[in-house]
């Protein structure tokens, strides 16, 4: 098994979860209604916890301690896609991003339950069940607000159009794509993208929203190229940890 390829895959999955988990947590106390405040906070807790479990797997194959890895790297060392680091914007933007991301994440973890790398397959079986609540939440609100008022529909459509190129960036290919597939670790980004597109079209088809025109994917995140928004997020997220990285919590 190609260890470099495996690590690249694990880092990008965990980094997506950690960064979006942090963005979700920014809704704590700010949600448009109490239930949504709690929903985004709960999903934040799940995603940060899931990223921790993957950093733990990485630690067991020679990478740093999970806290060090999460808090001590700079933006260019992160492999998350750019979509998850974008600021929350208004609720429609966060909701649409949540829908686009979690639909892909749920399919990714379904695929990973069959991974040839056993620790990942076991964890994926566990995470798969938790993600059902995230996709259920996203789907419920996209369907409801995507068929509600002119304002709700136009807001969601604008966010959808803006996010779509970033969403395509989730499937940026790894330099080790062939090894990952050949080793049976993961069926690859292209296979994931195909299933994702079909699922998104199916749900959007039940609303008054339209699929955006196909546009060029915003790539680079997987290689450490990020928007101006990631470093300030990392500075804030790690502020307390960096005061005393050896503190015992």
């Amino acid at each position: 098994m190609n260890q470099t390829a495996l690590k690249e895959l694990l880092y990008k999955i965990a980094d997506d979860q950690l960064i979006l988990g942090h963005r979700n947590s920014e809704w704590t106390g700010m949600g448009p209604l109490l239930e949504e405040d709690i929903a985004f906070s709960s999903m934040a807790q799940d995603k940060v916890g899931q990223s921790h479990a993957i950093y733990q797997i990485l630690h067991e194959i020679g990478e740093g301690e999970p806290d060090q890895v999460a808090f001590m790297r700079n933006a260019e060392q992160f492999h998350n896609c750019q979509m998850v680091e974008l600021p929350n914007g208004e609720y429609d933007f966060s909701l649409m991003r949540h829908f686009l991301y979690d639909t892909a994440e749920a399919i990714r973890f379904d695929m990973l339950t069959k991974s040839s790398y056993e620790p990942l397959a076991l964890l994926a079986k566990k995470i798969q069940g938790e993600l059902r609540y995230h996709t259920m939440h996203a789907k419920t609100w996209i369907k409801q607000l995507g068929t509600a008022t002119e304002e709700s529909k136009s807001r969601l459509q604008t966010s959808f159009n803006e996010l779509f190129p970033y969403a395509l960036g989730m499937f940026e290919q790894s330099p080790y794509e062939n090894d990952i597939i050949a080793d049976g670790i993961f069926p690859g980004e292209e296979a994931l993208k195909e299933k994702w597109m079909a699922r998104v079209e199916e749900i959007i088809g039940q609303t008054d929203l339209k699929m955006p025109e196909v546009s060029e994917a915003k790539l680079g995140g997987r290689k450490g190229e990020h928007t101006e928004y990631l470093q300030p997020l990392l500075d804030e997220m790690s502020e307390v940890f960096k005061i005393d990285p050896t503190a015992d919590w």
Partner: peptide, 13 residues
């Protein structure tokens, strides 16, 4: 069901 997300990760309201 009011919301699948409650006061802790394992509870719904």
């Amino acid at each position: 069901l009011k919301t699948p997300f409650g006061p802790t990760a394992c509870r719904s309201i």
